[in-house]
Simulated assay, not measured.
Amino acid sequence: MPDTNSLLATARAKLEESLLAKGLRRSSERFAILDEVYSRNDHFDAEELYQAMHQKSYPVSRATVYNTLDVLVECGLVIRHQFGDEDNVKSRYEKSLGRRQHAHLVCVVCHRVQEFCDPRLHLIETNVGNLLQFNVQSHSLVFYGQCAGDGCQTKPADESK
């Protein structure tokens, strides 16, 4: 896995190339948002990113955050996930460069997202692709449930005690 500085340099070069190809402005705000995204190791929503930028005293508008996230998704630097049920779908994002394939656990109570890797997932992907003669490019797997440990901030009290 590349180090953080080379990963960020690669991401910045890819964003620059994408902006040039699309005739979009190469603004300092867009690159600052990219830097913030690549400094994180979590799943975040646009509002959390906006708040993080303001906590660092970087004046950027919500519209710029949302628009830049769209650009970052389009050029493959960020992945957008739609976690939630049909009544409460929320877009959450994560950086994509330097990340290995993984799946997610989403708590339906506290909405925490946890990642996990299991080599059997790659084996299933390969076997299904071979069996159905399909070139799988990527996959997404999300388990919804409830945190069982003490980490769930909004977990209801255990009524059996």
Rank of each mutant, 00 (worst) to 15 (best):
M1Q: 10
D3P: 07
N5P: 01
K14D: 07
L20S: 09
A21T: 05
G23M: 02
R25Q: 11
R26M: 09
S27H: 01
S27D: 07
S28L: 10
F31A: 03
I33S: 04
I33M: 03
I33H: 04
L34D: 04
L34N: 04
D35Y: 00
V37L: 03
V37I: 15
V37M: 03
Y38A: 05
Y38C: 03
S39V: 00
S39Y: 03
N41T: 07
N41H: 12
F44G: 01
E48R: 09
L49N: 04
Q55S: 13
P59W: 01
V60H: 00
V60D: 02
S61D: 00
A63V: 08
Y66G: 02
T68Q: 07
L69P: 06
V71D: 14
V71P: 00
L72Q: 02
G76R: 06
I79N: 09
R80I: 06
R80Y: 02
F83H: 08
G84M: 08
G84Y: 08
D85G: 15
E86N: 13
N88D: 15
K90P: 00
K90W: 00
R92V: 15
R92Y: 09
S96W: 00
L97F: 05
G98W: 03
H104C: 08
L105N: 11
L105I: 09
V108S: 15
V109C: 13
V109T: 15
C110E: 08
F116G: 04
C117S: 13
L121Q: 10
N127S: 11
G129E: 04
N130G: 15
Q133V: 08
F134H: 14
N135Q: 14
V136Q: 07
V142A: 10
F143H: 09
G145D: 06
G151Q: 11
Q153Y: 00
T154I: 03
K155H: 10
P156R: 07
E159N: 11
E159H: 08
S160Y: 10
